[in-house]
Nucleic acid binder design. Sequence first.
DNA 1: GCAAAATAGTTACCCAGGTAACTATATAGG
DNA 2: CCTATATAGTTACCTGGGTAACTATTTTGC
Lengths: 133, 133
Amino acid sequence: MDQQHLVHLLNQRVRYINKSLNETLKQYGLYSAQWSILFCLVTNGSMTQTEISNYLNVEKPTVTRTLKRMEASGWVEKAQGKDKRELLVGLTDMAEMKYEEIKEVVSIHDQEILTNLTEGERETLYNILLKLG
Amino acid sequence: MDQQHLVHLLNQRVRYINKSLNETLKQYGLYSAQWSILFCLVTNGSMTQTEISNYLNVEKPTVTRTLKRMEASGWVEKAQGKDKRELLVGLTDMAEMKYEEIKEVVSIHDQEILTNLTEGERETLYNILLKLG
DNA sequence: GCAAAATAGTTACCCAGGTAACTATATAGG
DNA sequence: CCTATATAGTTACCTGGGTAACTATTTTGC
C-alpha cells in the first residue's frame, strides 16, 4: 500500500466532504466550522472558548475568529463566565429555533456521504481512524 | 454508528496529519500543499496548471496562488506551453536536487502517521475511502 | 470570415486551519 | 504582600481551501 497515495486520498475526501457540507449549509448562511461549534454548544450547553477549543481540537485563535462571525450573524452570544477572563458562549434563541431543522439537513448530507458504506464498514473506518496519527 | 461523530473524527485526523506534515516540511521552507505539487511534478513531469488542478482535485485559483509562492521561493518555474494561454510548470534545479531528501523525510512522516495500522488495515482504509463521498 | 462558445489562467474576496506574541486576570510561592 | 507563573482570550499574520467574475486566447459553427 502506497502511503503517500493513502494520505493524499484521505485529504481529498475530507476536502470534498467539507465542500459539499458547505453547499448544504449555504441556505442557512452557515459554514462547516460554524456548524461544528453550533453542534458542540447544543450537545454540551454553554461553554468557554477554551472548552470549545479543546472539544473540537481547534486552536483558540481559530475559535475566536469563527465565534466572531457567528456572533455577527446572530447564532451565538457571549456572557461573562466565573472570571473576568472567561467568556461563556451560548446559543441565541434564533439558533435554538433553527437547530433541529439544520441538524436534519446535515444528517441527510452525512447519510449521502456514507451511503456506499455498510454499517460494518463505518465501524471499521471509525476504529481505523482512532488508530491514525 | 453516529454519522456526525464519524465525519468529525475524519476531519480532525486529517487536520492533525496536515499539521504534523507542515512541521516536518518546515526545515525545507515548504508547506503541505506545495509538497503535493512538487510530488505531482516529479511524478508526471512538467504540467499545465489545469493538469495539476485536475490531478490534485484542487481548484485552479488555489493552484495559481500556491504556484506563485513556490515560484517566489524557487521551487518551480513557468514556461510557455503549446498555446499562448497555456503555462507549463516545471521543477527548478534546486527542486530536483532536494526532492529525494524531502521525499525520504515525508515518507518517514507518513510511516509514523500510519504506524498503528497493519498492512491489511491500510488497504481497508484505502478501499473504504474510495467508496466515500 | 466572424461571432459565439470553450479553454487557460488570474484577480478579488470568502471561510478556516495554524503560530507567535500580546493583554488582562487569576493563582501560587517565597 | 508581592512577584512569578499560569490561564483566557485577542491580534496580527501565515498557508490553503473555496466561488464569482474577469482577461486573453483558441475553437467551433453558422
